[in-house]
Write a protein that binds this DNA or RNA. Structure first.
Ligand SMILES: NC(=O)c1ccc[n+]([C@@H]2O[C@H](COP(=O)([O-])OP(=O)(O)OC[C@H]3O[C@@H](n4cnc5c(N)ncnc54)[C@H](O)[C@@H]3O)[C@@H](O)[C@H]2O)c1
Ligand SMILES: NC(=O)c1ccc[n+]([C@@H]2O[C@H](COP(=O)([O-])OP(=O)(O)OC[C@H]3O[C@@H](n4cnc5c(N)ncnc54)[C@H](O)[C@@H]3O)[C@@H](O)[C@H]2O)c1
Lengths: 209, 209
DNA sequence: AGCATTTTGTGAAAAAAATATCTATTATTT
DNA sequence: AAATAATAGATATTTTTTTCACAAAATGCT
């Protein structure tokens, strides 16, 4: 029921702010100004205040923000005050790295299931998750209440896997394959295209010289 | 000496267009309109034309673009008509996945060197690259003419590794650690923050419901 | 050859985002 | 208690990016 539209850049920055606040919290800092945050994460102080202003008033004029309080607010805004069950499809190099990464659990993302089609991979363990065959996709999504699907299969299989995830009831998809995916409007899609990132670097190297 | 500023979003889209054109080329398609490209990658046709207009006139009115020709132009724009030597620092889960990924070489990114500090990892092979100790960083950057450094170490080591890369002469850095890095203005930096991506999903799941 | 059709390239308009400025509120100092 | 300083929140301005819309080519059809 979105009324205001929040810039995606704002959401991404909030995520970064929250991690900086977490760090400050652990260092024992109790209050922080928009300028401090700005300095810490490399944006302007006006930007920090603007980003927060979309969601309410969290600070005290003349004083700043309470680190812990602001942190909790942002965590809530980002939906990280709850657990999200995640399925990774494709237990290759990248899928395995993601499955083994502890950082996601710390932020409330529970990687409950990893699937593959390769007989040699199915049955192996990634940490304490056993890789299961693609056939159980729908069953697992339903019984484990999985809302987020991660696509880490070759480009040729990406759309097919995506369709299966959506049919099974997944609400959001993080796509690592270099393929433009078609999803219904109500499904949230994000693409992480690692090649594009390298190519932006090479462009800048050529262009700025 | 940059005269016009090109939106970063434009550069990212060009990368996506180029891959779509590559695909079309392999399917034997010879000409394509801005509308076709738009449909294929999910943007507007005006956007496609505007993006290209920053760099010249590549099409024929009433006809469209020659697939191969436009592809070559974009490859040139992105600096992919040359080889880039890349060093990955951190041969953990993510660094290994990146080192073993064939897709980068296909786009002109030559991963020549992978470094780590862990005695158990140094000396092991990733494909045909042997993981070497961090100590050789400067030597390798120089002798192998490395211009791009990939930071795939824990956040606590990220700034230190970055400083070493820059001191050794690397011109661009792709950072996978969840840490805001400080780099001199002339060094190109891009952050790939995988947690942020998941958090944008959870935000949208909460916000749009 | 003339006319209809397609589709680029582009200037103008609109929308979105970032930045700067101003105002109000709190805390601190004198 | 008044003056001063700090800083959030609101508003205004500027900049950037996207979208729109149309004239200018190129093609093909009659
Ligand atoms: N590894 C990287 O660093 C990297 C970088 C950029 C992009 N990518 C992209 O990420 C994706 C995965 O890359 P990777 O390097 O892990 O590849 P990979 O080949 O190591 O792993 C892919 C895995 O997917 C499995 N698979 C294939 N079809 C499947 C299906 N229909 N259902 C379930 N599993 C299936 C394969 O068995 C394999 O284990 C690819 O699309 C790749 O282009 C990877
Ligand atoms: N694996 C993922 O899916 C994932 C997801 C999001 C972010 N990240 C980030 O990417 C980075 C790497 O993640 P990972 O999962 O590969 O971690 P990892 O622990 O598997 O690997 C890190 C590697 O870096 C090495 N290292 C440590 N200090 C070093 C130094 N100073 N110089 C060279 N090497 C050093 C370690 O020996 C280790 O091999 C981390 O910053 C992590 O937060 C990873």
């Amino acid at each position: 029921m979105k009324v205001f539209k929040i810039p995606e850049a704002t959401v991404m920055r909030l995520s970064v702010y929250s991690r900086y606040l977490y760090q400050l919290g652990r260092e024992g800092v109790e209050t922080v100004s928009s300028g401090d945050i700005a300095k810490g994460v490399g944006v302007s102080s006006a930007q920090v205040r603007k980003d927060l202003a979309y969601f309410g008033e969290f600070g005290t004029r003349g004083v700043g923000y309470k680190v812990e309080e602001l942190y909790n607010h942002i965590i809530k805004i980002l939906g990280l005050d709850q657990q999200w069950n995640v399925m990774i499809v494709g237990a290759g190099k990248l899928g395995s790295a993601l499955a083994l990464y502890q950082g996601f659990a710390e932020r409330g993302f529970n990687i409950t299931t990893v699937l593959d089609v390769d007989e040699n991979i199915i049955g192996t363990k990634l940490g304490n998750i056993e890789v299961e065959p693609l056939e159980v996709l729908e069953t697992r999504v339903k019984e484990r209440n999985i809302t987020i699907g991660v696509v880490a299969v070759p480009a040729s299989a990406a759309q097919d896997v995506t369709d299966q995830l959506i049919k099974a009831g997944v609400k959001a998809i993080l796509n690592f394959s270099p393929r433009v995916l078609k999803v219904p409007r109500e499904v949230v899609l994000r693409n992480v295209d690692l090649s594009v990132n390298l190519e932006v670097l090479s462009f800048n190297l050529v262009f700025n010289s």
